[in-house]
Design a protein around this nucleic acid. Structure first.
Length: 419
DNA sequence: ATTCCACAGGAATGAACGGAAC
DNA sequence: GTTCCGTTCATTCCTGTGGAAT
């Protein structure tokens, strides 16, 4: 028998569940597509394109609708000789500044042999390159900025739509399509950016459980062989998706994970609710791990402090009371403890990741306002994720000991190898 | 109505670092 | 090498804030 063998297949086409899969029809987005299409019409007419701004929570079809319409647009535009359409697609996830957006855009526009470094240049130089490259195309440029809410300054959003007016461009026409998950992002934009970027706004509402179910059924019909899914599987995935903010991506990922788990099992031919539950657990763990791996050492120390305090039933706990524990851990790890202000930032960051939940308290003149933090995740999940990141046997063993003993944690947990 | 606690969180600033250009 | 430049993580200083106590 070879090292690899074909799995007992439950999938007909697993790719249909992947993020990059383009379904032939988008379910439940008719109105939005219609508006979107109208907004893009000027491109075909050879006019200066509208700037379009899409907003709505993650996984409600914004990106899918964009891909769908733009691929049609590209196809239809090719029938007219006088239209030279260029599409540039950029996901701004992980990019925090206009500068980074600009460098990535330049690289998108250039071929592989001519890429620039994403650091080192003065800002003005990068913009200069961007205008030059755009102008060289001399046609209609549609620039899609997905997840543009990740970028923390407006500069590029101000510059791009005005490039023509400022004589930075002569030949090229550009239209910006901004996609944002964050509702408040639009309101935080400076007025001048808002008026130009948000010429056309399209709101994508969350899917309800019914929509999600239709979407899942559509994908499952392509992805799985018939009668492989238990009847309860799709409704369950849809229900979880609807509960967590109507996110189709998440529901589909869950379905795929459940499918994968079922496939891994020998002689399993159906996907059941059990697989869905297990898949949910796995995905959750993945998210936690990802969040934790992005933290600073001090972030880890703060989390670890909170963890030990939690084991001692000290949570919920205010930042003031976390501090002594954190300080001693930091010293044990050979680091200078951070100043309280900064430590609070780390606590907030943990809260943002959903690892920790916060309740605001106010005892008025007696106690003032403060926040109380408590672990919001399954302890074992955090522990195993932390373990992967820390790669520190000492920490792990001592904690496991406490878990087993179920009694209070001493502060002498080994942290000597913390790095 | 006013006072006031104890923290939240914004803003300014700086050190360290990686990369480009000279 | 040195000089710029942008980014990240941190410190320092500061103003804002909600509600119990007066």
């Amino acid at each position: 028998m070879g090292l690899f063998e074909r799995d007992t297949e439950i999938y007909k086409n697993r790719d249909a569940l992947r993020e990059d899969y383009q379904p032939a029809q988008l379910v439940g987005r008719d109105e939005e597509i219609q508006m979107y299409q109208t907004a893009l019409q000027p491109v075909i007419n050879g006019e200066q394109p509208n700037n379009v701004f899409l907003y709505g929570k993650t996984g409600v079809g914004k990106t899918a609708a964009t891909r769908y319409l733009l691929s049609h647009l590209e196809e239809d535009a090719s029938q007219y000789d006088d239209i030279d359409l260029h599409l540039t697609f950029l996901n701004c996830d992980g990019l925090t500044s206009s500068y980074q957006i600009a460098t990535r855009l330049v690289n998108e526009l250039r071929d592989e042999t001519n890429q620039i470094s994403t650091t080192g240049y003065p800002r003005a130089t990068v913009y200069e390159m961007l205008w030059e490259d755009l102008d060289e195309t001399a046609g209609t440029n549609l620039i899609v900025l997905d997840e543009v809410d990740h970028v923390e300054d407006d500069s590029i959003l101000y510059q791009l739509p005005r490039a023509r007016a400022n004589n930075n461009l002569s030949a090229a026409k550009i239209g910006i399509i901004g996609i944002s998950n964050d509702f408040s992002f639009r309101d935080d934009l400076s007025p001048k950016v808002k008026s130009s970027l948000c010429e056309q706004e399209i709101h994508f509402p969350a899917y309800d459980a019914g929509d999600l179910q239709k979407i899942l059924e559509q994908r499952a019909a392509v992805a799985f062989h018939e009668d492989v899914l238990d009847d309860a599987v799709i409704p369950l995935c849809a229900a979880y998706g609807a509960k967590d903010a109507g996110d189709a991506r998440q529901s589909i990922d869950l379905l795929m994970k459940a499918g994968d788990l079922a496939r891994e099992e020998e002689e399993t031919v159906t996907v059941t609710e059990t697989h869905v539950e297990a898949g949910r657990h796995d995905l959750e763990r993945g998210r936690i791990e990802e969040g934790i791996s992005g933290l600073t050492q001090h972030g880890h120390l703060v989390l670890y402090s909170l963890l030990t305090l939690h084991l001692q039933d000290e949570t919920p706990i205010r930042s003031r009371d976390v501090r002594p524990r954190y300080t001693s851990f930091a010293q044990r790890a050979g680091r200078d403890p951070l100043v309280p202000r900064r430590m609070r930032d780390h606590l907030s960051e943990l809260a943002m990741l959903g690892l920790v939940s916060v309740t605001e308290r106010n005892e008025g003149r007696r106690g003032g306002t403060y926040r109380e933090y408590t672990l919001d995740m399954d302890l074992d999940l955090i522990l195993s994720a932390l373990d992967d990141v820390l790669n520190d046997v000492g920490v792990h063993d001592s904690l496991q000991g406490h878990l087993a003993a179920g009694e209070s944690t001493d502060e002498n947990a080994s942290l000597t190898e913390f790095n």
